[in-house]
C-alpha cells in the first residue's frame, strides 16, 4: 500500500473535452496508469493516476483546465475472491468512510485506488495488511 497523488480535472459535459485532456497528456509525454470519471448533470470530474503529477498539472492548467490534487491510497492485492473484501473490512470496522474508489486487475494482481475521507487514518490501518 502506498499513498500517492491523484490528479482531478473538472470537465464540462461537452463532447470532446476528455479527448482534450488525453491530447495534452500525450503531447507532454505523460502516461495515465488509472483513471475514473465521476459525472453529474452538468459536469464531470476525471480522476487519474499519472506518471508525472506536477508536469500533468502544469500542462492542464496552462490549457485552462480546473485541476486539483488529492492524496489517495494505492493498494495491490491478489486477484482472487475475497481479497478486496478483506481490505474493505479493515476500514469499515474502524469506521473509515470511503468517498470513492476505482480498480483494475491484471493477471495475478488487482490494483485499487481508494479515496477515504481520512487518508492518514486509512493508511495507518492498511499499512500492516
Amino acid at each position: 500500500m502506498t499513498t500517492i497523488k491523484q490528479l482531478s480535472v473538472f470537465i464540462e459535459n461537452r463532447t470532446g473535452r476528455i479527448n482534450e485532456v488525453t491530447r495534452i497528456l500525450e503531447e507532454s509525454g505523460i502516461n495515465m496508469s488509472a483513471f475514473s470519471l465521476a459525472e453529474s448533470a452538468d459536469f464531470g470530474i476525471l480522476r487519474m493516476i499519472v506518471s508525472d503529477v506536477d508536469g500533468a498539472r502544469a500542462a492542464l492548467k496552462a490549457a485552462h483546465f480546473g485541476v486539483s490534487t488529492t492524496d489517495v491510497l494505492a493498494i495491490s492485492c491478489p486477484n482472487r475472491p475475497g481479497a478486496m473484501h478483506r481490505v474493505l473490512e479493515v476500514l469499515a470496522r474502524e469506521n473509515v468512510f470511503i468517498e470513492y474508489m476505482y480498480a483494475f486487475s491484471e493477471g495475478e494482481v488487482a490494483n485499487v485506488i481508494i479515496r477515504p475521507t481520512d487518508v492518514e487514518r486509512a493508511a495507518e490501518l492498511l499499512r500492516n495488511l
Binding site: S8, F10, A38, G66, S68, R115
Partner: peptide, 16 residues
C-alpha cells in the same frame, strides 16, 4: 461561473 483555482475538488459533492 468559474471556480477559482484551489477550490476545485476531486469530489462531485464538494463541487455541488
Amino acid at each position: 461561473v468559474e471556480v477559482r483555482d484551489g477550490f476545485y475538488s476531486d469530489e462531485i459533492n464538494r463541487m455541488m
